[in-house]
């Protein structure tokens, strides 16, 4: 069989300009890949966040600990429940290779907790860390409202007086090293106002549970 050649490849100005732009994008991605935050000048140029990919998965310091969002409930009679996960751990199955909608939620929780801890650390370094400042931070409010939603769902019949949530660091499946988790942040007690179906925080009311 005689092979026939394809038509000319069609190089032209548009191709050259596009190739140059893509090459520039590639080198910008290289420049944005430095593992140290101190060398993030190019990465910060991408204000959107999607254009310069972060290819440093689990590097250089892998996540060897879990963050857990936990809560406990105080009943009207003053009894306090044990701590419980707001979002129970999801154990892997083969089905997760194609279908795992909760993954985005667990990653979002991880990201928000990580952000709040970074903020707390920065405030501590500046000597400005106190509960008032931290509780006013939106990431804190997201976690508070998320926890409140879980409490309402699970304790609907009990009319709890309020709840408290905490961020812990723990070793997950490691039952040998598993000790008491490290409490990284514990909220103050957050009272519920049952009649209005709302909870009250810092004197203001925040609606929850409107799904």
């Amino acid at each position: 069989m005689t092979a026939s050649r394809t038509p000319p490849t069609g190089r032209g100005l548009a191709t050259a300009v596009t190739a140059a732009a893509l090459a520039g994008w590639f080198w910008a991605s290289v420049g944005a890949s430095h593992p140290s935050e101190m060398f993030a000048r190019i990465r910060k140029m991408d204000r959107n966040g999607i254009f310069l990919p972060n290819w440093r998965f689990f590097a250089p310091y892998p996540a060897r600990f879990d963050y857990g969002l936990i809560y406990r409930v105080e009943q009207a009679d003053g009894a306090v429940s044990p701590w419980r996960f707001v979002m129970e751990p999801i154990h892997r199955t083969w089905a997760h290779t194609v279908w795992f909608p909760a993954r985005r939620r667990s990653k979002a929780l991880f990201d928000i907790v990580a952000e709040l801890l970074v903020v707390a650390r920065r405030l501590a370094e500046q000597g400005d860390l106190n509960s008032e400042v931290l509780e006013a931070y939106p990431a804190f409010k997201v976690l508070r409202d998320f926890s409140a939603g879980a409490v309402r769902d699970r304790h609907r019949d009990e009319s709890p007086a309020g709840f408290q949530f905490a961020i812990i660091e723990h070793t997950g499946y490691d039952e040998i090293e598993q000790e008491e988790p490290t409490y990284l942040m514990v909220s103050s007690f957050i009272p519920f106002d049952d009649e209005a179906g709302e909870h009250r925080v810092n004197g203001s009311k925040v609606t929850v549970g409107a799904r």
Partner: peptide
């Protein structure tokens, strides 16, 4: 980038990640 991390060089990273609920 992993090679810059001591946990990856000493082999502790993989079990370290696998023990977490998240990953």
């Amino acid at each position: 980038a992993k090679l810059l991390g001591p946990d990856w060089r000493n082999g502790e990273a993989l079990p370290g990640v696998l023990r977490t609920y998240t990953y």
